[in-house]
């Protein structure tokens, strides 16, 4: 239905094709990239116009829930409002979010190939020294920052997710540097590490619910500690999850399919 446009002449960088000179231009342009595309483009422009209109129409001076959050900060057990919202006021969301991460990792584990089919990355690749050097220098620093971020989450922007991300970065470095044999990690350890965060969160939540007869309602004085406990475990498991997501599928070594990838154009027909 839409005639294929040769890949090289990508439309100009601006996504919104400006209406070129007069109807002739449009017709020629439409003929060139097919009617559906043109219609679609017009519709996207319309959508954009609508969104513009709504954004401009938004109430300018609304403080949102800032006041409410501030009012309950004292009870939330943490200083930083974001962490309070994340882990206390909307703790349920965060719980589900961690489950999302876990599921993503399960998805990847399902799709990984049998371990032996991927020979470990050949050691002694050129530029080994630079990589080793970086590893030696950066890994400790990364761990430190992760720890700080985790702690800072209590009163400043930071927290479990940021810490987990930094940990993951460290992990990536190790995997690329061939320091971590991802495939030899025993199965149970792999699964435990992934789901550790969720397990702790659920345990805490159930204990708390039993105590206060209300889902995820931390008792006043224990809130801070509990949140911290959750933060630590969650950060760890997020790190592991992200590493699994990356390491579960090593970069493609030279396989026939790979060769075909490099040579073929990367824009197959619609």
């Amino acid at each position: 239905m839409t005639s294929n446009k040769s890949p090289t002449t990508e439309p100009a960088s601006t996504r919104r094709p400006k209406s070129s000179s007069g109807a002739a231009g449009v017709r020629e342009f439409a003929a060139e990239i097919g009617f559906a595309r043109v219609a679609f483009n017009l519709l996207v422009v319309l959508l954009l116009g609508l969104l513009f209109w709504t954004v401009l129409d938004l109430p300018p001076q609304s403080a949102g829930l800032h006041a409410k959050v501030k009012a309950h900060m004292h009870v939330s057990g943490v200083a930083s409002p974001i962490t309070a919202v994340l882990l206390n006021f909307r703790g349920y969301d965060t719980l589900l979010e961690i489950v999302v991460l876990l599921l993503a990792s399960i998805g990847c584990l399902i799709l990984r190939d049998a371990p032996q089919s991927h020979p470990a990355l050949a050691p002694g690749r050129p530029g080994k020294w630079v990589l080793d050097g970086m590893i030696h220098v950066l890994i400790p620093v990364m761990l430190l920052t992760a720890g700080y971020l985790l702690w800072a989450g209590d009163h400043a922007p930071g927290g479990a997710f940021q810490a987990g991300a930094v940990l993951a970065a460290a992990g990536f470095l190790l995997v690329l540097g061939n320091r971590m044999r991802f495939w030899r990690t025993p199965e149970w350890l792999l699964r435990l590490s992934l789901s550790f965060g969720m397990i702790v969160f659920v345990l805490v939540a159930s204990v708390v619910t039993i105590l206060t007869k209300n889902l995820l309602q931390y008792p006043e004085n224990y809130a801070g500690i509990l949140i911290l406990l959750i933060e630590i475990s969650v950060a760890g498991s997020i790190g592991c999850v992200l590493i699994t997501l990356f390491a579960g599928h090593p970069p493609v070594t030279r396989t026939p399919a790979a060769d075909q990838l490099w040579h073929s154009n990367d824009e197959p027909k619609e």
Binding site: L58, Q61, A63, G64, L65, H66, V69, I82, R90
Partner: peptide
Amino acid sequence: RIPGAAPDPVPHA
């Protein structure tokens, strides 16, 4: 949206 005040944490979350 309010220039002076602290940002609303909920959207951040």
